[in-house]
Computed example of a mutant assay.
Amino acid sequence: YHIVEGEHSLWDGVSRPYRETIRAFLVYFHNEILRRPVETFCFTNGSIGNFFFAGARIFFQSLDAAIFLFSRVSQIPAESLVLPVISTNDRLTLGCELWDGTIIRGQNEISHPSNGRREVVDKDCNSCSALPSSIKRVFYMSSEGCNLLHEVFPEANHTVLEQLSKVDCIVYAMGSLFTSVCPSLVLRGIGETIASRSIPKVLLLNGSHDRETIGLSASGFVTAITDSLNRTYGDPDKSLKYHPKDYVNAILVPEGGQIPLDVENLASKGIFHVLTVKSVHDTKVGVIFDPVSLIQALTGLISEHMDARLAEPDPLTENVTSVC
């Protein structure tokens, strides 16, 4: 309440124009919730940024417009391109299927269920109950769905596919593997486009496990990414058969990270380029990459790839013989 009213200490140091712009969409989001009395909404552990973004999306009825506003308000550099992997106003819900057949509906229930408790959520794997079985796959379901019969297959944003076909490097970032990374990979067209590119495809390995990845090694992360891009466990008519090395050809590992680095298993998947990068310790999330060292490592991978491309013989001239 104090945040919406502009009286909370979080507003300290925020200029009036910025404060009023953000508050307007927080108020709009709150009003939209009040208009749905049959649905309950718990603000506990919510992100103010997410509330602002949701208010903007509902107001504009456009995900692209909401991203544009958020980018300007948060001063994201103009040269950075933020794209929604799905561009739709339909309400979708993330679901996951466990290896024991259990279906879990909703991102929070997968990664950090609150069990109705109004307390701060800690996504550390030791802070909440373990999943009854490891995750087999993630998929999208209708907002009212609760089982595999309600699975839906949204299309990937064509602009995302276009950008993937032009970029010099693809990076699978740190984060929640199954609720942040994989949902962007299971869409049709994403796997096909990534597999077709001969560029660095880099996995930034997490520094620690969370509820979703307990027991996974580095090769387990690669398998999860490969299965998602291949849509291995979904509709067999929509699945692909690409190899792990077609999707990941380099792995950057934070120094001192907790994820087991099973180099032999990675090599069996065709992944030989594994580089340890200097890390720092974050009090909230643990081991993360040192930003400067990470940028240097990524730049080095891209430069190495570019140099290799330049060293390749030109097929139009390599067989030309000079005749005097």
Rank of each mutant, 00 (worst) to 15 (best):
F139T: 00
N50D: 14
L69C: 09
L92A: 01
P77R: 06
K284V: 09
S217P: 01
T21S: 13
T44W: 12
L34Q: 14
F70S: 12
A250D: 01
S268G: 06
S114D: 14
Y1T: 13
D237R: 11
V120P: 06
N31V: 07
L131K: 01
G175Q: 02
D168R: 12
L63I: 15
L63C: 14
G49Q: 04
V222L: 02
E5H: 11
L298T: 04
S133E: 06
S208K: 08
F289Y: 15
K201F: 03
G234S: 07
D12Q: 13
N108H: 09
I288Q: 11
Y247M: 07
Q61K: 15
K201I: 01
L310Q: 11
G6A: 11
L301K: 01
M174G: 04
L205K: 02
T21H: 15
R72M: 13
P17N: 05
R105E: 10
I22K: 00
Y140M: 07
L240Q: 09
S322A: 11
L94T: 02
L261G: 03
V323C: 12
N230D: 11
F289M: 04
Q296V: 13
S134N: 05
I214E: 10
I295V: 14
F272L: 10
L316Q: 10
P254K: 08
T179W: 04
N319R: 10
G49F: 08
I288S: 04
A56K: 02
D246S: 14
V222A: 03
E7V: 09
H150L: 05
V152G: 06
I225H: 01
S268P: 01
V292M: 11
F272M: 08
M306S: 09
N265F: 11
H209Q: 12
G116E: 07
